[in-house]
Nucleic acid binder design. Sequence first.
DNA 1: TCAATGATTTTG
DNA 2: AAAATCATTGAT
Length: 169
Amino acid sequence: MINNKLNSTFFQRDVLEVAPGLIGKKLVRIINGIRSDWIITEVEAYRGEEDLACHASKGRTKRTEVMYHAGGELYIYLIYGMYWMMNIVTGDINDPQAVLIRGVQHISGPGKVSRALKIDSSFNGESVVNSERIWLEKGIRAPEIHCATRIGIDYAGDYWRNVEWRFFM
DNA sequence: TCAATGATTTTG
DNA sequence: AAAATCATTGAT
């Protein structure tokens, strides 16, 4: 066996395939030379300019630029002045999609995920395929995956507010 | 129920 | 230039 890393083929699919596929996957982060593994337990999908909950619904801006890249890069941004959100860009180039990492094993909340993983803006645009400090690997097993509505996006209108694009185990 | 807290986006 | 908007959390 070579390694268990997920490659760009995995990420360059539609976000609604990648997001549930990430549940149970292992997120690996090197901090001060020490490796730590995290099982992804909850994610949300954000897809396209038509998704009013997706930042790309405002169009292509300096902030959303990364979402227009081909899948396999991180999209990092600050929310409420205190929490870094970590997303993984998916899909093809010029198709803005991303998966929010909402929970990992024994940690809850997407703000605390990035805090625990020591994620900051220097990771914006970072490749999760080539990076020496963060990547994804095949996980433990194929757990049962549940769906529900996304959190914290009540502004997005009746339709987008209610699509069940949050996936968890 | 709401304050904290700052980058991004809009003129709400 | 100023105001509003947040993929949140935790403490009142």
